[in-house]
Every structure is written in C-alpha cells, then in structure tokens.
C-alpha cells in the first residue's frame, strides 16, 4: 500500500513541477495547489498506513487495546492543509490583482518591478 502511495506522491510532485515551470501564473498557482497536496499525502504515507483502526482509547482503559493508526501525521496534515488552504486563497487574490494591475498573466511580461531597459551604473569617478 505504501508503495502505491509513494508512486502517487511521485506523480503529483511531477505534475506540480511541470505546472510550476509554466509561464502562466494560473498554472503556477495550480502547481502550488498540487504541490501542497502532494506533500500532505507524503506526510500521511510517511506516518505508515493502518486501515480501519482509529486512534481512540476505549472508555475503560488507559492504553489502546490494539495497534492503531498513527494520529500524529494526521495532525500534521491537518495543520498543513489549513496553512496551504489559506496561502492558496491569498495567491488566488494576488494572482487576480496582478492580472488586473499588470494586464498579463505571463510571468515573463511582468517587468514592472524589473524594467527591461538596463541602466548602466555611473562608470566614472
């Protein structure tokens, strides 16, 4: 099962990298979204997969009665999901604003901060 998930993580990373290398901002944002999910799946898989056994201790005992799923990666993934979700909303707004202000979604044409024409620094003195 872990092998299958590892392959899936690899596929997601590959797809995300492909999208991140694109020139279109929207594709880059999609790449970031996929990258975040790939990492979440990676953490989940790294914590070892156990089926059908939630990590809940029964009322009358102090230890789980059988080997349970590892709750820590789930907590980590939950944190990471919340963070990547909020970053993605920020990016969507930023991308939209960039498209409005700069009139392009092609990153090679976003040259307002770094204009194309090069000014030589003063050479004398």
């Amino acid at each position: 099962m872990e092998t299958l998930f590892a392959v899936l993580v690899g596929v997601l990373f590959g797809g995300a990298t492909y999208l991140l290398l694109s020139r279109k901002l929207v594709r880059i944002l999609l790449g970031i979204a996929i990258l975040g999910n790939a990492v979440n799946l990676l953490i989940f898989t790294a914590g070892r997969l156990t089926r059908d056994v939630p990590p809940i201790i029964p009322v009358n005992s102090y230890l789980p009665v059988e080997a349970t799923a590892n709750p820590l990666p789930q907590a980590l993934v939950l944190t990471a999901i919340v963070i990547s979700f909020s970053f993605l909303t920020f990016f969507l707004v930023l991308g939209y604003r960039a498209y409005q202000e700069l009139g392009t979604d092609d990153i090679l044409e976003m040259r307002v901060a770094e204009p194309k024409e090069h000014h030589e620094p003063p050479l004398g003195y």
Binding site: L25, I28, L94, A98, E101, L102, I107, R111, V112, A113
Partner: peptide, 9 residues
Amino acid sequence: IDGAVKYAV
C-alpha cells in the same frame, strides 16, 4: 504586486 508574485511563489 509584481514583486509580491515573485517573492510569494
């Protein structure tokens, strides 16, 4: 905004 796109990504 231009700078933020590059910085943030």
